[in-house]
Computed example of a mutant assay.
Amino acid sequence: MKILIRLLCILGGALTLSFLAAKGVLAPIGQWYEMNNARSFDDVSDAFVLALAVQAIFAVAGGWLGDWVFRKWRHKQPDRP
């Protein structure tokens, strides 16, 4: 049961942080870049690949954060016989 809860915490953290990065940071920056600096489709595709890499980094960081929250939660629970 602990394994399932731990995996859910990791998955929840990864999805949450990845979603926040995509909607809060990457989308506005991408729209600004596309409207102001992109000169060709190659520039837009390079920016898209960079955004995917950044979102993957945020997903890994979110997974680590979810695991950290799980470990803190387990540490605060009293030991059961």
Rank of each mutant, 00 (worst) to 15 (best):
A22L: 13
A51P: 01
D67N: 11
D42G: 03
L11Y: 01
A38F: 02
G66S: 07
A59T: 15
Q55M: 13
F19G: 02
P78Y: 12
G12Y: 05
K72P: 04
G24A: 02
P28I: 05
L26Y: 08
W32T: 11
F58A: 15
N36K: 12
G62V: 03
T16E: 00
L26F: 12
R71F: 06
A27N: 07
V54E: 05
A14N: 06
S45T: 15
V44D: 00
L7Q: 10
I57Q: 07
L52T: 12
I29Q: 12
A22K: 11
M35K: 15
P78A: 13
F58K: 00
R74C: 09
A27F: 04
A56V: 10
A14L: 08
R6W: 11
M1C: 01
M1R: 06
A53S: 10
G62L: 07
P28N: 04
L20A: 10
Q31E: 15
L26Q: 07
R80F: 05
F41M: 08
A14W: 00
I29M: 13
D46K: 11
I3N: 07
G12D: 08
W68A: 13
A56G: 14
F19Q: 03
L11K: 00
L20T: 06
L4P: 00
I5F: 09
L17V: 15
D42K: 06
E34M: 10
W68T: 08
D46I: 03
D79W: 14
R71H: 06
I5S: 10
L8S: 09
N37G: 02
A14Y: 02
A14H: 06
E34Y: 04
A38P: 07
G66Y: 01
M35I: 06
V49N: 01
I29E: 02
V54R: 07
G62C: 07
D43H: 08
Q31V: 06
K2R: 15
P81F: 10
A59M: 10
L4Q: 09
R39N: 10
P81V: 12
G24V: 00
D46L: 11
L11N: 00
V60C: 05
T16D: 00
H75W: 15
V44W: 00
K2V: 02
W68E: 00
F70G: 03
R39G: 10
A47V: 04
A51N: 11
D46E: 07
A53H: 10
K23I: 06
L4T: 13
A61G: 01
G63M: 03
P81M: 07
G13E: 05
V44R: 13
V49M: 03
I10E: 06
D46A: 13
L50K: 11
G63E: 05
R74S: 08
K2Q: 07
K2M: 06
A61P: 01
A22W: 12
E34N: 13
K23E: 14
R39M: 09
V25C: 11
L26M: 12
A21F: 05
K76E: 01
R74W: 08
P81I: 09
C9R: 03
P78L: 11
W73N: 11
R71E: 13
S45W: 08
G12F: 06
D46N: 09
I29V: 15
D67F: 12
G12M: 03
F70W: 15
C9F: 15
D79S: 12
I57M: 08
H75M: 06
A56E: 11
L8D: 05
G63S: 01
F41T: 07
D67Y: 13
T16C: 12
